[in-house]
């Protein structure tokens, strides 16, 4: 009947973080990379909420995660607009196809 401690939650958030990083590094689709970023941010936000329950961080943790959610939404909006713009110019969203810039 013991309650779940902080460590299982932290482990889940570590899984989120790692999956996000792997996703960011392996995906060639621009939007796929953005999904990886969302996973990483989500892992961080789960960390904050976990700490808000189990450490003296208290309510601050929840405030942090609220701001993270809002900022992530803003970032996603701009990223998506840029991705669409890229698509309009290149007719693909494959990051590797962008090869105008090199040297």
């Amino acid at each position: 009947m013991e309650a779940v401690g902080p460590n299982p939650f932290l482990f889940v958030s570590a899984v989120l973080f790692v999956c996000g990083v792997v996703c960011m590094t392996t995906k060639r689709n621009g939007i796929g990379v953005l999904m990886g970023v969302e996973l990483v941010l989500n892992g961080a936000s789960l960390n904050f909420v976990t700490f808000s329950k189990f450490t003296p961080l208290g309510l601050d943790g929840q405030v942090f995660s609220l701001f993270v959610i809002v900022l992530a939404a803003a970032e996603a909006a701009v990223a998506l607009a840029i991705a669409l713009n890229f698509y309009n110019n290149h007719l693909t969203i494959d990051v590797d196809r962008g090869d105008e810039l090199h040297g």
Partner: peptide
């Protein structure tokens, strides 16, 4: 548009990693 896409993809990733670090420090 290519520059912007590369910038946003890497930038968002770096910000995410940074945030994870911040969450650990705050905790």
């Amino acid at each position: 548009s290519e520059a912007a896409l590369k910038y946003v993809v890497y930038g968002a990733g770096a910000a995410g990693v940074m945030l994870y670090g911040i969450s650990l420090l705050a905790g």
